[in-house]
């Protein structure tokens, strides 16, 4: 399926709530064993927009992000309560195939993690494991072009992905993710280990990518959230009775509202740099 073939929903609609949500959570509780890591999150992720998750360390924003493509399944004690719907289908329903979920909802990680394979093999990996029948050369060129990396690597596709610079590796990881034609791309602090120029390139890339993909990004960098996102969700952390830290969603609105006139005082304090 080409992303272009998908029916295009309203892009950049003025209010988050009016856009068709791709992902929606209702009273989502995330547990590790008996420990409630994130509590009662109810929010929606609008189509073809960039949603940023911000908040202090330990507020569960990465944990929530990893629920969206069921990557937390790899952690044994992990479980969720409540609803997490993808186009109205509960992602955690017993019959849902997690492998299929991850093909539609891709992920870019904090630290660039290309496979120890050639650049070419990195990009086609997802296609190969999913039994893609099309032209792989064309897929590589298209994906690397979309990830703004093609011109830099087109003459050395056979060299190892690990030989690239950090910023190039991260764009390779983005190319690898979009090569499987997901609908949603999750990014877990994708610029945390990159220099400012590489960061800028990836931020520009996000603006391009949101034409075709729905993007959710976790970031510690509030300037980054304000630059790249259309919608921002602010998470905070509070101590439970047993002294453990438990994350919760404070508010969720258009990015300009979060940064210029948030409803909650703690959001105001966080975005103005008074804590966090």
């Amino acid at each position: 399926m080409n992303p272009q073939d998908r029916p295009s929903h309203s892009v950049g609609s003025p209010k988050a709530a009016s856009a068709t949500p791709v992902l929606e959570t209702r009273n989502l509780n995330i547990y590790y064993g008996s420990f409630l890591a994130v509590r009662e999150v109810s929010m929606s992720i609008p189509n073809n927009q960039v949603t940023a998750f911000i908040g202090p360390s330990g507020c569960g924003k990465s944990t929530l992000l990893r629920c969206f493509n069921r990557l937390n399944d790899l952690i044994e004690t992990f479980r969720v309560e409540g609803d997490l719907n993808y186009h109205g289908q509960n992602l955690y329903a017993p019959k849902v195939d997690a492998v299929d979920v991850r093909r539609r909802i891709g992920m870019v990680f904090q630290k660039p993690n290309p496979f120890p394979k050639s650049i070419y093999e990195n990009v086609v990996y997802g296609a190969r494991v999913n039994g893609y029948k099309g032209d792989l050369d064309e897929l590589v060129e298209r994906s690397l072009t979309q990830a703004a990396l093609w011109d830099e690597v087109k003459d050395k596709l056979k060299t190892s992905g690990l030989a690239l610079s950090g910023g190039q590796q991260q764009r390779l990881c983005i190319a690898r993710t979009i090569a499987v034609q997901p609908e949603v791309v999750l990014m877990d602090e994708p610029c945390a280990s990159l220099d400012p120029i590489s960061t800028l390139k990836i931020e520009e890339l996000m603006h391009e990518l949101k034409q075709q993909y729905t993007i959710v990004i976790v970031t510690h960098n509030m300037q980054q959230a304000s630059r790249v996102s259309d919608v921002t969700a602010f998470f905070n952390v509070r101590l439970t009775d047993t002294g453990k830290r438990s994350g919760y969603l404070v508010e969720h609105d258009r990015t300009e509202n979060i940064f210029q006139n948030p409803k909650e005082e703690s959001t105001q304090e966080y975005v103005s740099g008074r804590f966090g």
Partner: peptide
């Protein structure tokens, strides 16, 4: 994770 995240 990267591999699993790509639907492997």
């Amino acid at each position: 994770w990267a591999s699993v995240g790509l639907g492997a």
